[in-house]
């Protein structure tokens, strides 16, 4: 939602996911499940606004590196706070039933897509697109570049936090290593690259293929899993920079007879 139009890649997913996990771990025993999930989103929004105001003045790769650092920072901060406050490494989370978790996840996923579609159609969509195309020109045409980036970054992090809070209730136990896991940070980016980042369907396709491919390789080739997976990703990036959706769209254009190869 954020990276697609702007070209800014955030590696902070795990940070917000972790914030979500911890929100659930601390509050789920005392409060109703939906309230916890919403609170997780609110916390993430606040964190993202703070982080965004500090970092979204950075351009391009510097922003990516900072968000990556943020995950590490939160990991050590939370580990240290836990050690001092509770003297333990992890926490138990009161769990919810599988069905509740499934529906909750489903609702969040639908919310993400609906928000993304609305965003894209709104004036923010055009602002984001102009930022991605030419940040300087956008700014000189009256777009409040920093605020737009912060708001959208914050909105997208809300969903990551909600997802984290929901997953926490399945895991029953979390510690900082699980919460601020760098894999969580790379997964969504890889899924999006695999599917194609230029539109909203791409990442969804990417996620589905990614999940199936992952499970398939894990069961059939447990030893070579990571190797094959890595090779697939490299091939996709090298040969289909537009992702799977880009490939499909290209094929469709060819089928319709237009033989203009997209640049």
């Amino acid at each position: 939602m954020f990276a697609g139009p702007t070209g800014y890649i955030s590696l902070a997913s795990a940070a917000f996911y972790g914030v979500g996990l911890y929100t659930a771990a601390i509050l789920n025993a005392q409060m109703a499940f939906p309230v916890v999930v919403i609170l997780a989103g609110v916390f993430c929004f606040i964190v993202a606004v703070l982080v965004g105001m500090l970092t979204l003045r950075l351009r391009g790769v510097y922003f990516t590196i900072f968000t990556f650092g943020l995950v590490q920072l939160l990991f050590y901060a939370v580990a240290e706070v836990e050690r001092i406050a509770t003297g333990k490494r992890g926490r138990f989370v009161s769990t919810e039933g599988t069905e509740t978790v499934y529906y909750a996840m489903f609702i969040v996923a639908v919310l993400v897509l609906v928000t993304a579609v609305l965003l894209r159609r709104s004036r923010y969509g055009l602002a984001l697109q102009s930022i991605g195309e030419y940040e300087q020109a956008a700014e000189h045409s009256g777009v409040n570049v920093v605020r737009t980036k912060v708001v959208v970054f914050a909105v997208s992090s809300v969903f990551m936090g909600m997802a984290g809070a929901i997953v926490a209730t399945r895991r029953a136990y979390i510690d900082p290593g699980i919460a601020f896991d760098l894999n969580v940070t790379f997964m969504p980016v890889l899924m999006a690259i695999l599917g194609g980042m230029t539109n909203l369907i791409g990442p969804v396709i990417g996620a589905v293929v990614f999940a199936y491919l992952g499970e398939f390789l894990l069961t059939r080739l447990p030893d070579l899993y990571m190797l094959v997976f890595g090779a697939v990703m490299v091939l996709v990036i090298l040969f289909f920079p537009q992702g799977l959706w880009g490939l499909l769209a290209q094929g469709w254009r060819k089928l319709r007879g237009g033989r203009r190869a997209p640049a």
Partner: peptide, 11 residues
């Protein structure tokens, strides 16, 4: 849409 960036945000 290029021009709309100007009219939507710049006035």
């Amino acid at each position: 849409r290029n021009v709309m960036v100007g009219s939507l945000f710049g006035t």
